[in-house]
Every structure is written in structure tokens, then in C-alpha cells.
């Protein structure tokens, strides 16, 4: 039986969809059977980032409302041998079309056939968020080094802690710009981690290759030569339980290294 991981943030545009696509891709690269689930009903775009938009026939709402079987709605990623699938969100209906109970049932069904279910969560804390976390066993909170994003992450972590069926959330800090952190114009990794007091599972640099790759429907994790790709691959391996220190590529900051070590019990 697989595990469901929800990728969430509170604030929009911080990189939930990008993180979902790349963690899913990186887990598949590790040989795991992965199903991506887009719960951003009405504003779907995980399919676009994955380059799978043209193959959508049915969507999540069709499954929930019984218009098709789950396997009919799943879109297979041809770049992988039967390892990576996407359950797309509906584009035409609104979020209230699905209830948390229905989501819970759906995710449980997927867990029978997949090692990992990666759930892309919509922004906000309303029903869309409640749906996305309903079937999750674990959570990854994405933030950027901005005060407002960190504030929203804090709010989300509070809500996740209340839903005590989910294990303690892990943190991804996305879109880091080294020079801004050095000049103190951006919150630094240490500050954010201390403030949110949850475990850091990865940091991803701000990298225009990420945007280019998304626009081409080829998640950056497929490209072995980019900084961001290595960061996502490392997050995937940490999810699998490997103990991977921060790469020099990811950051040279000593205190960051300290945090990661602490997380993985190296001390």
C-alpha cells in the first residue's frame, strides 16, 4: 500500500504545482510507481507543466461522480515505463463539486496500486485545501523566502497540525536567490526554518530553467544537469528515507547545512 503526500502552501504562485510535478517525476526516476493528483479544480495546470494536457479524456470530478472508472481518467506519462500517471483536475466545475470524504475514498483507492500519490493543492485554506489534505498521510509545505509566503505557510502548518491524521509536515523553500540572502534583502533559510519550526526537506534555487522547462511541458527534474533538478531529485530521495546532505550546488551557507544534518540525525 502506497503513501499519499500533499504539496501545499497557502499562498498562490510559490511553486506547489512545480514542486508536485518535479517530486513526482523524481520519484518515478527512482523507480517508484507514482500518481500525480491535481486538486486545483477550476484552475488546473499540473497537466500543462507535465506536458500531458492533450491526452486528457476524463478528470477527477468525472471519477468522483461515477462517469468513469479511475483507470480511464488516469493519463499515462509515456516518458516512463508504466511508472508515472496523472489524475487531472476538472477545468469547468468549481471546487465544491468534490467533498473531503470523496477525496479520501479516491486517494485510498489509488494507494492500492501506487507507491506514491502526490497531491497538488490549490491556494487558500477553504474547501479546495480541505479536499487536498483529506486523503494525505504526509504533507510538504512550500514557501518562498518572502514574509507573506512564510506567514501563509505558518497558517497552513497550524491547520495541518490540527488535522492530526497527517504526520508532521516537511518544508521546501523554493526560489532562493543567494545574492539577496547574502545582502539581507531576503529572509534566510535558517530564519525561515527556525520560525516555522518544522523539518527542512529541501531548498530549490530560483532558476529560469525551471520556468522554461515548465513551459515546454518537461519538468526540470528530467534534466540531469540543472541545479534545480538536482535539488528536486534530492528531495525525492529524502522522501524515500535516504540521508542526503545539502549539495554544494544547493547552497554554501553553513547554517543551512547544519539544519539539514540535524534533520537527518547526523548532528
Amino acid at each position: 500500500m502506497g503513501e499519499a503526500i500533499v504539496i501545499t502552501s497557502g499562498k498562490g504562485g510559490v511553486g506547489k504545482t512545480t514542486t508536485s510535478a518535479n517530486i513526482g517525476t523524481a520519484l518515478a526516476l527512482q523507480g517508484k510507481k507514482v500518481c500525480l493528483v491535481d486538486t486545483d479544480i477550476g484552475l488546473r495546470n499540473l497537466d500543462v507543466v507535465m506536458g500531458l494536457e492533450n491526452r486528457i479524456i476524463y478528470d477527477l470530478v468525472d471519477v468522483v461522480e461515477g462517469r468513469c472508472k479511475i483507470h480511464q481518467a488516469l493519463v499515462k506519462d509515456k516518458r516512463f515505463e508504466d511508472l508515472l500517471y496523472l489524475l487531472p483536475a476538472a477545468q469547468t466545475v468549481d471546487k465544491s463539486a468534490v467533498t473531503p470524504e470523496q477525496m479520501h475514498k479516491l486517494i485510498n483507492e489509488l494507494k492500492q496500486d501506487y507507491d506514491y500519490i502526490v497531491i497538488d493543492c490549490p491556494a487558500g485554506i477553504e474547501q479546495g485545501f480541505q479536499n487536498a489534505i483529506a486523503g494525505a498521510d504526509r504533507a510538504i509545505v512550500v514557501t518562498t523566502p518572502e514574509v507573506s509566503a512564510v506567514r501563509d505557510a505558518d497558517r497552513i502548518i497550524g491547520l495541518l497540525e490540527k488535522a492530526n491524521t497527517i504526520e508532521s509536515p516537511k518544508l521546501v523553500i523554493n526560489r532562493i536567490r543567494n545574492h539577496m540572502m547574502k545582502t539581507g534583502d531576503m529572509l534566510d533559510v535558517d530564519e525561515i526554518t527556525t520560525h516555522l519550526s518544522i523539518e527542512l526537506i529541501g531548498i530549490v534555487a530560483d532558476d529560469e530553467e525551471v520556468i522554461k522547462a515548465s513551459n515546454h511541458g518537461e519538468p526540470i527534474a528530467l534534466n540531469p544537469n540543472s541545479k534545480a533538478s538536482i535539488a528536486y531529485r534530492n528531495i525525492a530521495r529524502r522522501i524515500l528515507g535516504e540521508s542526503i546532505p545539502l549539495q554544494p550546488l544547493e547552497d554554501k551557507n553553513k547554517s543551512v547545512f547544519g539544519k539539514i544534518k540535524q534533520f537527518f540525525g547526523v548532528r
Binding site: 501563509d152 505558518d154 497558517r155 497550524g158 497540525e161 520560525h195
Partner: peptide, 25 residues
């Protein structure tokens, strides 16, 4: 515990908090 953004903790008497009160809490 940590009192996070959006959370409110209320007690009738004295409060001893072992943790932080984050902005918005």
C-alpha cells in the same frame, strides 16, 4: 506548542507558554 498565524490560545488564568507566538498568532 507554537501558536501559529491565525491561531488563538485563550486561558482564564495565567499562561505559561513553552514555545513561540508567531506573527498573526
Amino acid at each position: 506548542r507554537i501558536i501559529r498565524s491565525g491561531q488563538v490560545l485563550e486561558v482564564p488564568g495565567d499562561l505559561l507558554l513553552i514555545g513561540d507566538v508567531n506573527p498573526g498568532g
